[in-house]
Design a protein around this nucleic acid. Sequence first.
RNA 1: GCCGGGGUGGCGGAACUGGUCAGACGCGCCCGCCUUAAAAGCGGGUGUCCCCUCGUGGGGCAUCUGGGUUCGACUCCCAGCCCCGGCACCA
Length: 810
Amino acid sequence: MERYDPQAIETKWQQVWEDEQAFVVPNPGPAELATHRRETYVLEMLPYPSGDLHMGHTLNYTIGDVLSHVRRRHGYQVLRTMGYDAFGLPAENAAIREGRHPREVTERNIAAIREQMRRMGWAFDWTREVSTSDPAYYRWTQWLFLRFFERGLAYRKEAPVKWCPNDQTVLANEQVIDGRCERCGAEVEARNLTQWFFKITDYADALLDEMSLLESWPERVLTMQRNWIGRSAGARVVFTVDGSGDELPVFTTRPDTLFGATFFVLAPEHPLVERLVAGSEQEAELREYVRHAAARSTVEREAKEKDGVFTGRHAVNPVNGERIPIWVADYVLMEYGTGAIMAVPAHDERDYAFAERYGLEIRQVVAPADGSEAEGPFVAHTDDEVLVDSGSFTGMPAPEAKQAISAWLAEQGKGEQTIGYRLRDWLLSRQRYWGCPIPIVHCSACGEVPVPDDELPVLLPEVDDYLPKGRSPIAAAEDWVATTCPRCGGPAERETDTMDTFVDSSWYFIRYADPHNEHEPFSREIADYWLPVNQYVGGIEHAVLHLLYARFFTKVLQELGYVGFREPFLRLFNQGMITAGGAKMSKSKGNVINPLVYADRYGADAVRLYTLFMGPADEDMDWQDSGIEGVWRFLNRLWRVALGQIGRESPTGLDTPLVRKAHWAIAKVTDDVDRRFAFNTPIAAVMELVNEIQRSPDDPAARFAAETAVSLIQPYAPHVAEELWSRLGHERLWEHPWPIADPALLEEDTVEVVVQVNGKVRDRLHVAAGTADEELVRRARESERVRGHLDGGEPRRTVVVRDKLVNFVV
RNA sequence: GCCGGGGUGGCGGAACUGGUCAGACGCGCCCGCCUUAAAAGCGGGUGUCCCCUCGUGGGGCAUCUGGGUUCGACUCCCAGCCCCGGCACCA
C-alpha cells in the first residue's frame, strides 16, 4: 500500500486551495446587504511579524482554523483573514543592528511568516490581507486620529516620563532597574514632555457597563479589565493650606473617616510641593527626597518601606477646621486621584504604618456597633459600624455617614460625592521612527492644526539614523518637518511623534471587512454586515490593553456614526501557553520549539493535530516530542484504514456497531467544538472510531465509518482529509456539509444498569432501554451477587435511576 | 495582600448538569505475533494493596489534605496545603 507522504499531499492541496480561491469570501452585493446571508466572523489576533512563526501562532491559528472550517461546513459564510501588526520597536532595533531600513526588515519578515503560515495550511482569505505599516492602511489610521481630534478625544498635555540622560531617550517603567537605565546604567531622571493622549477616561463607565453586551468572555479577562478601570465611589474633599489658603483637594472612598484625618500627604511630584517648601528650613531635604523619588521605578517604590518628609506646613480639615501636618511621601501616587491624600491612620493600613514610623497621632473615628475593641488599623468595613468622636455625626452608622458628610461638604462648597478611577488617559505618543506619523502641524499662529484629509497619508520621511536623540528620529528630516500651516499658510512644523502601535491594532478588524476601500477606512454597510466579530481567539497577554483599546475605539466609531455596534468582539477565547519542559519557551533557555521543523518531519497536519491534542486549548500545555509521534502514528493508521475501504461498498440504511460508533463520534465532535470549545477530546473520539474500524474489518459499514472519520478530522488535518476524501471518490470536503448525527442511532437498545448495595457496585444488568423501575428492582433483587450483600435483609431504601442504576440501602 | 485558574496512574490528559466497578484517547513500559534480524505494523496487558480452589475469582483502598452534605461526591459545602497566571502603596 502506498505510504502516507504528508509533504506531497500538503503541497498539492495548498495549491488547489489557492487555485480555487477556496477560502476567499466576497463581500455582499447590495441585495445581500439587505437580506443578510448566514455569515460569521472568526478572528485571530493580529500577529507582530517577527521572522519566525512560533508555537503561540500555531495554536492560535489552528483553533481559529477548526472553528472556521466547522462553521463553513455548517453552511456559514465565514470571514477569516490575516494581517500584520507591522510597526513597532523590534523592526526598528533590527534595522539599527543590521544597518537597514525598518521597512525592509518588516517586509522581509512578513514575506517569511506569510510563507510559513501557508505551509501550515490555514484557511485564510488571503485577498483581504492588511499590514498596518502600509501607507494604504495607516492613511486611515491617521484619518481616524483626526476624527478623534475633532471630537476633543485626542489632546496634548505635559506628562512626566522616565528619561535616560545618557541614551537621550524615554524609558518604559520596565526599563528602569534600581533607578538606573537598563542599558547603560545611567541614573534615570524624570522629565516632562508634551505628549498626545486619547481621552479613554471619558469611556470608563461605558467600558465597564457595556460588558453586559458581551456574549461570552472569560471571567478572568473581565475581572482584569474591571480592576484596570478601577471604579470606586467616594468623595472629593477640599482641604486648604493653612496660611495661604491654597486648595488641596483629595479623593477618598472613606468620607466617613474625615474626623480621623491626623496628617496630610502629597505625592513628591505634586505641583504644590515646590511652593510649599520654598525658603523653608526643610527645603534642601525635601528637594533631595523628591529628586530621588522621581528616579525610582514603581517596582522599587512599592518594595521599600514607607518614608517621607515633613514640609513644615499644615492643612486645614474642612469638617472641623483642625490643622494637620503636611508630609511628602512617595507612597502617594501623582497618577491616582489628586496626588494628595488625607491620612487616616486608624482606618488605613498604609497611613497606619506611616504614622507608627513617625509617631503621628492615630485617632479612631469608626467603631463596631457592638463596642468591641480593634487592634491596629481598623479597616474592616461592614454595615454595622458607627462613627465615634466625629462631631455632629457621632453615633451615625458608617454607610449613612458617608452620604451625610458628602452632602454636608457639598453644602459648604468644600467637596462633593464623586467617583474615582484607576484608568488613565491613553498616552499614544512615541518618540520613535517606525510608527504611524501623527497628522498634525504645529503653527505658531494657529496652534495644533490637523493635516487636511486629502493630504493623507502623511508619509514617514526617510532618515539616516533611527536612534532617538532626545527627540523623535523623524525630527532629523528637517525638510519634512518644515511645512506650511494648512490654515494660515504661514511657516509651521510637523508633529514628529509617531503613534503607539496599539492604535494601529484598535481598528484592523473592521478594515478586514473592507480592506481595499480607497475612499474611507471601511464602508459602514459592509462593516455592519460582518461585524461585530462573532469569535475572537488570542492570547491572554492582551486581556487588558489591546482589548480595552479596541473596545474604546469601537464605541467612539459608533458615536461618530461609522459603525452600528458598541462592542467589537462578542465572544472571546483565550488559548493557553505552550511550554517546553515545563518552562516558557525562550531563546536564552534554548527550549524553543519551531513548528516548521516538525512540519518538515511529520507534516503540518500532525503539528496542527498535536497542538490541539495536547490538552485543553485554554490551559497551558507542555510540548513533548513523543506526543507528536503518537498523532503521526494515528494519521498513518487513518491513512491505511481509509485506503483499505477504496472499492468497497457503502450500503445505506445499516444499523451496525460501526454505524453507531460513527454517529456517536459525529455527535461528540460537533458538540465539543460548537458548544464546549474543547478541541482535544474530538481528536480522541475520531481515534476511537478509527481503532474500531480497524478491529471490525467485516462490518458492512466500515466504509461509511471511514468516510465519517475523514470528514470529522478535516478541520484539524485538512490536507490528509482532503486527499483521502478524494481517493474515496468525492471532492471538495472543505465545503462538504458537516455530518449530522442521527438521534435514533445514538440511543441504545439495551443499556447496562448498575446494581449497587450501599453505593458499591455489586452487579450489572443488561436490559432494554426504558425498562420500568419496578422491573429493574425485581431483576436486581434476583441477582446472586446482590443477594449475598443484602444478607437476606430488606433494603431500607431503594434508589432507581432509569437506564443507569439501582441502589439498595441497607 | 487581592483577583482568577488549577491539583486525577510512570507522563499529557478524560469523566460535560452529583449516577454504569474513576482513569477515555495518547505517551511510556511489559508480553506476544510478524521478520533471518531490526524498524514499522498488529494483538494483549498496565492505579494500588490483599486473599485464594489462580479464575471470564473475591475483596480493601484510591482523584492534594482534613471535615461535611447525600442512597451515591473528581464533581456540591467548610477549613487548610501546594502550584500557575494577573494585579497591587489606587487613598
